[in-house]
Structure formats: C-alpha cells, structure tokens
Amino acid sequence: MLRKLLMLAIPAAVIAAGIGLWVTAPSTVEAARFEALSGDAARGETVFTASGCASCHTVKGSEDKLVLAGGQAFASDFGTFYAPNISSHPEEGIGGWSQIAFANAVLRGVSPEGQHYYPAFPYTSYVRMTDADLVDLWAYMQTLPADATPSKPHDVGFPFNIRRSVGGWKFLFMDDGFVTEADSELERGRYLVEALAHCAECHTPRNALGALDTARWMAGAPNPSGQGTIPPLTPDKLDWSADDIAYYLETGFTPEYDSAGGHMAAVIDNFSKLGPEDRAAVAAYVKALPAP
C-alpha cells in the first residue's frame, strides 16, 4: 500500500517540480564544444558497436544490422516505447541533423526541436561519452543506409506523456559522473560498461520512478519485458572468472556452454566485434564490482 501510494505521490511531486520551469527546461551542449573536432567514421564504427545502437534501432529479427529503421517495442511500467528511425534518411531518420543536434540527443536526451527524449534512450549512460567518440559516431552514422519508415509514436499514458516532466526526472537522476571508482587499469572497462554499452540499464534495478538504483549497481533486476530477470553481475552472485566473462562476451557461451539468449544475444553480437582487449577490460570491470 505504501509502495502504491509512493508510486502515485512521487510522480505527482515530479509534476509539481515540473512547474518549477528552470528545472524542466531542456539543457543543451555548448555549440563551440565540438567545433574543433572532426569525426573519423572508421573509429566511429567501434563506438557504434560498443554503444549497441543497432540492437534497439534495427527492425526486430532483421539480418541487416545497419539499417536503423526503428520500430522495436520496449515495454515499461510507464508505457511502451518504440525505438525511432535513426537511419540517415533526411526526413524520417536523422540524416538532416547537424553534429550539434546529434550531440544534444545523445549526451543530453534533447531533440532538435528542443523536446526531452524519454530515458528509454540511454542518454543517462551516453552522457559520459567522450567528445571525440561522439563526433566519430556521428561521422559513422551518416555513412549508414537511409530508410524511409516513419518512427512510431510512443504509447505512454498520463502523467508520463507530459514530456516536460522528463526535465524534472533528469534534474533528479541524470549524472555525468561515473558510478564506480576506477584506477587507470579499470578505466577502459568502466567507460565501456558505464558509458557506451550501458549495461546497467538492464542489470541494475530501478526505483519507483524508473531511475537506476546506484546503491544496488549491477545487482540484477526484473526483465523490463516482464518475463524473467536480468542476472546480477556482482561478485556475491556471479562466480565466473574474468576469462569466462571475456569468452562469454566473445562467443555467447556460458561456462556451462549454454548460450546467451534474449537481448543479451544482441549484446554479444556487438562485443564479439570489439577487440579482445575491450572484452578483457569489461571482464576486469565486472570482477572489480563491489558486492551490493
């Protein structure tokens, strides 16, 4: 009952906060920030793969992982979100965007029209992306094929359909700092996990408002699809060796030689294309996670 009350009270509070205008106004990156940088499409391909863009933005079951036509459905407690078309199509995709518009979308969750995106788009992780990776990613995505499929509107009810309230949510929960401490050896793994590959979006439980509970970082969570659970990665639960983890990310084979399924199969597709040093970096990060 208390939980139910909280579920109602907290959104109401957020909407109230939404009336505090400055809190909810979409914030954008400074235009000058990327001016001196020029993107390298070849490097951008690695960023694209590590960030898992194709896993959500291709048509479900599609063999061609470079046609980013959108349409996959993501169920949540707040409604169903549909991944939009982010192909290079000038009208239906993002082909007509500028680099700064792309930066605002990925790093701030703000559309070219100045509207908040819902955090189903993991900009709360991408906010930690380096400027160099951002411009490389943009350079690469412009080389991908165009697709004319229109984006499907999200199916989100009141009060979550008030986009401005997402501004309050961001004010409360969006943080561009990393979650865990890392020395130089763990830095690459932390960057891959916490920024690009956005692993925590599924592996960390969420609070009543759908924000990641960083106190239970990577402690496992219900599957947002409603079926089953996403396994914990913390050392109290996951006893795989670093080699086991790296091999799993390369091949999808668990130490018992079961093979990855569901959305993780798509994640393995991406990690298998990265270099062995990146898989080892992720494995080292996972092994260094604190118990919750």
Binding site: G252, G261, D269
Partner: peptide, 20 residues
C-alpha cells in the same frame, strides 16, 4: 569454428527463447 557455431545458437536464442 566454435565461434561460428555459437553464432548460430545465438541467432535462434535471440528471438525464440524466453529469457530466464
């Protein structure tokens, strides 16, 4: 060869196996 075979396992599990 094993990696390739693993890819065919995943190809099916991706869409046809319910998550645990």
């Amino acid at each position: 060869a094993l990696g390739k075979l693993g890819g065919t396992c995943k190809a099916c599990h991706d869409n046809y196996r319910t998550p645990e």
